[in-house]
Design a protein around this nucleic acid. Structure first.
Length: 782
DNA sequence: TGATGCTGCGTTTTT
DNA sequence: CGCAGCATCA
């Protein structure tokens, strides 16, 4: 029987000398690993990533290179070779989905369910776990509740108002964003730089942050940011505790390292100072969450942060065809801040990336709809088709089109199940029953449905609770024995308090799903929506049913509530064959045979705001987003761009995305537009053919042909391509050479004089509307 | 308490 | 333009 070459002790296995002798002896272990069936299907790089167990390791895993396989095999290897017991592995991911997949696939490899991997989970869930164990060290009790963004904002608003700050001028949302950013960077209120604290309410920023943190402790609550920051603080301020964790975690594994933010990095760094066996897996080219605190530099800096680190590149792509990979690689090569990888695929040939220009977003949707129908006739599964958009407003047009065509589709992403109003209300009821002192839950539902407990009654209640230093529920219990409240409010509050108490008494005797139904029913909450005649009321009732159904998967109410804040996801069981519609961001990690990428226009993609706010770094992140989009495709990818797009109900002409120019010609086919636009009625061919309006320096033969057909020879200059201008037919399509100082007429802006010209882009001082940038084809000489 | 009108905003989203 | 959130009025 032929065996793979004796890769027993690749030099990378023990990069650090002076390590303790291997348990069981090197030879014995070598025999064990060479035989291990789980290693057989790995390529040499994956295998190295698995077998380089000790010391810091960075696995740069390109798109589709079998990252998850390497990762789960690594866990399997550590367990099988007994380098660590399940409880000694720390494995962190960003999403619950990724954590579940890691758990399941490791189990598959080992051959049965892995038990005791208690430290496999998201950063947040592991943070919660640490905090619950030692909550008092950060000023919480172990049953602290977890606030979501909505609670957070309500709370901040109270604080802003209490501080006599105008909440309109200084919105709580904005403060929440600041606080989030501070927490992401590992800053407690006292560490906020003075300059930044000033950014909110003239210097009240840090103060409010401090007040908010205090309030959270009083409420025995933590927000999402705290789960990271407070668990970091817990470790940092308690050396003995830190030491015990450092000793516990013999091996650490971090998925999607490019998405880590500063606190996560600091947290990992602390823990890794123990055994030093930290393996981070990621792809700098797929870092697309910079805007919410992720710091690509973490991955770029890895070798500096962890001296002696071994860097392993996974560059064999098993997903995409040659052309798709070639196009994506060519595109991402335009980024400067990257470690650099060269992906290869053995899937030869296939179709080139199709690029097509269309008249407007309507035609784009029609065209893609047609393409999909054609694919479907050819036997293509709709499940294997995805449309990836940059911004969610782009989805509407596709949905409308698909409904007209009767083409089944599903939208992935969108508002989260547990963020819905009715779900949050229902959860507040359940929380209040389980955790009587949860003031936020109390506030939320004490008058939902309406019980006649208005502002006046609540003010008295709040005042009493504050002076007596008790929870709102305790305050209510006392108040109903007095005459502080009006008779009506008192009776109503009494009913409410008694209801909650009655339900609480049922916790141990009633199955929790049944109890939930009783609560929703007897509280009048269900009835409230049944009476509501608005269009979304039936949907809300459906969601409540879904909530109760989801609860059935947990042991009891407390168990359900513990998970719900962190783990609850929308129901998405496998259903019929449907086209997938989602944003590029939510497509990360997924793959499809065929991918449509609409809206590749300057301003939309790359998005103007990303560039305005983050400049070059923003542009590079947009480019990574394009790379993520392309690499989702196994066999076919088609990019479209529209010459006109309606934004905020204004028609804007657009020019093709610079990313199109960055795709290597050899992997691209420019499709000449089919007759799809013929039915536009009034908007005839001549207009469409005037494609030079959004011409680029794109240079494939097909493109040139298309250009020649359009009668344009000039290559407009590069430069910032934010061009606004309403699309209006010009009489003379050849009128494109204008001089500075020339007087012109524009359909929308009237008369003006040219202040500057840059290719076909003119800066004009209009007599009535001031300085504007317009395209030369929209102005006439005068 | 509910209805009505006004203002401001309009990229991506996990936990 | 369309929507959400808020304030104001009846």
């Amino acid at each position: 029987m032929t065996r793979p070459a004796p890769t027993t002790e690749p030099s990378g296995l023990r990069p650090v000398s002076g390590h303790q002798p291997a348990e069981g002896g090197i030879a014995a272990r070598a025999r064990a690993t060479a035989d291990a069936p789980y290693l057989r299907d790995l390529n040499p790089e994956q295998r190295e990533a698995v077998e380089t167990t000790d010391g810091p390791v960075l696995v740069l895993a390109g798109a589709g290179t079998g990252k998850t396989r390497a990762l789960t095999t690594r866990l399997t290897h550590l367990l099988t070779t007994r380098k660590a017991r399940p409880g000694e592995l720390l494995a962190v991911t960003f999403t619950n989905k990724a954590a579940r997949e890691m758990q399941a696939r490791t189990g598959d490899l080992i051959g049965n369910v892995v038990e005791g991997m208690r430290w496999l989970g998201t950063f947040h869930s592991i943070g919660v776990k640490m905090l619950r164990r030692d909550a008092e060290l950060v000023g919480l009790r172990s049953d602290f509740s977890i606030l979501d963004t909505d609670d957070q904002i309500r709370l901040l608003k109270q604080l802003i108002v209490a501080d006599n700050i105008d909440p309109k001028r200084w919105p709580a949302r904005q403060l929440a964003a600041f606080i989030d950013r501070w927490k992401n960077r590992g800053m407690t209120p006292d560490k906020v730089p003075a300059g930044e604290a000033f950014a909110f309410a003239n210097g009240k920023g840090a103060e409010l942050y401090g007040a908010y943190q205090q309030r959270l402790k009083i409420l025995n609550a933590a927000d999402f940011g705290d789960l990271l920051l407070e668990s970091f603080r817990l470790l940092q301020e308690n050396p003995d505790l830190l030491k015990s964790y450092q000793e516990r975690f013999r091996y650490m594994l971090v998925d999607e390292y490019q998405d880590t933010n500063a606190v996560q990095y600091l947290w990992l760094k602390l823990l890794a100072q123990g055994h030093g066996n930290i393996c981070c897996v990621g792809d700098d080219d797929q870092s697309i969450y910079g805007w919410r605190g992720a710091d690509v530099d973490n991955i770029l800096r890895f070798e500096k942060d962890f001296p002696g680190a071994k860097v392993i590149r996974l560059e064999r792509n098993y997903r995409s065809s040659e052309h798709i990979l070639g196009a994506a690689s060519g595109l991402i090569a335009h980024n400067e801040a990257r470690l650099g990888k060269t992906l290869h695929t053995e899937i030869d040939g296939g179709d080139r990336i199709a690029v097509q220009g269309v008249w407007d977003s309507g035609e784009e949707a029609r065209q893609i709809g047609e393409d999909i129908e054609q694919a479907q006739r050819g036997g293509h599964l709709l499940d294997e088709i995805a449309i990836l958009v940059r911004a969610s407003f782009q989805m509407r047009e596709f949905e409308e089109r698909f409904i007209t065509l009767g083409l089944p589709y599903r939208v992935i992403g969108g508002p989260r199940f547990y963020e819905r109003l009715e779900i949050r209300d229902a959860l507040a009821y359940l929380k209040l029953v389980v955790q009587g002192d949860n003031d936020l839950a109390f506030e939320r539902i004490v008058n939902v449905p309406k019980r006649g407990l208005g502002d006046a009654a609540l003010k008295i209640l709040h005042g009493f609770a504050r002076s007596a230093r008790v929870s709102l529920m305790q305050a209510a219990t006392s108040l109903i024995e007095t005459d502080e409240l009006t008779a009506r409010a008192r009776a109503s509050l009494k009913g409410f308090v008694e209801d909650i108490a009655r339900w609480r008494a049922m916790i141990d005797t009633t199955p929790h799903t049944e109890l939930a139904e009783i609560i929703l029913d007897e509280s009048g909450y269900t009835a409230m929506w049944q009476k509501d005649k608005s269009a979304n009321a039936p949907g809300r009732l459906e969601n409540l049913k879904e909530l109760v159904r989801a609860m059935g998967e947990y042991e009891n109410l407390a168990g359900f509530l513990e998970h719900v804040a962190l783990v609850m996801e929308r129901d998405s069981g496998p259903d019929e064959d449907k086209v997938n519609l989602m944003t590029l961001h939510s497509a990360k990690g997924l793959e499809f045979d065929t991918v449509f990428l609409p809206g590749w226009e300057e301003g939309l993609f790359p998005h103007q705001r990303a560039m305005d706010e983050s400049g070059h770094a923003g542009l590079e992140e947009e480019r990574r987003l394009a790379y993520v989009g392309l690499t989702r495709a196994r066999k076919r990818a088609k990019i479209t761009f529209a010459g006109n797009r309606r934004v905020h109900n204004l028609w804007q002409s657009a020019i093709p995305s610079r990313f199109l120019d960055e795709l290597p010609e050899a992997h691209v086919d420019v499709e000449e537009t089919s007759g799809g636009y013929g039915g536009l009625g009034g908007f005839g061919e001549s207009r469409f053919d005037r494609r030079q309006d959004f011409a680029s320096s794109y240079d494939t033969p097909g493109w040139q042909r298309a250009r020649r057909a359009a009668g344009d020879g000039a290559t407009p200059s590069r430069g910032p391509r934010t061009i606004e201008g309403e699309l209006v037919a010009t009489e003379d399509p050849a009128a494109s050479r204008h001089m500075v100082g020339e007087r012109i007429f524009h359909q929308k802006f009237g008369y003006g004089r040219i202040a500057a010209a840059d290719g076909n882009k003119l800066t004009i001082d209009f007599e009535k509307s001031g300085r504007k940038k317009v395209l030369d084809s929209f102005v006439e000489r005068h």
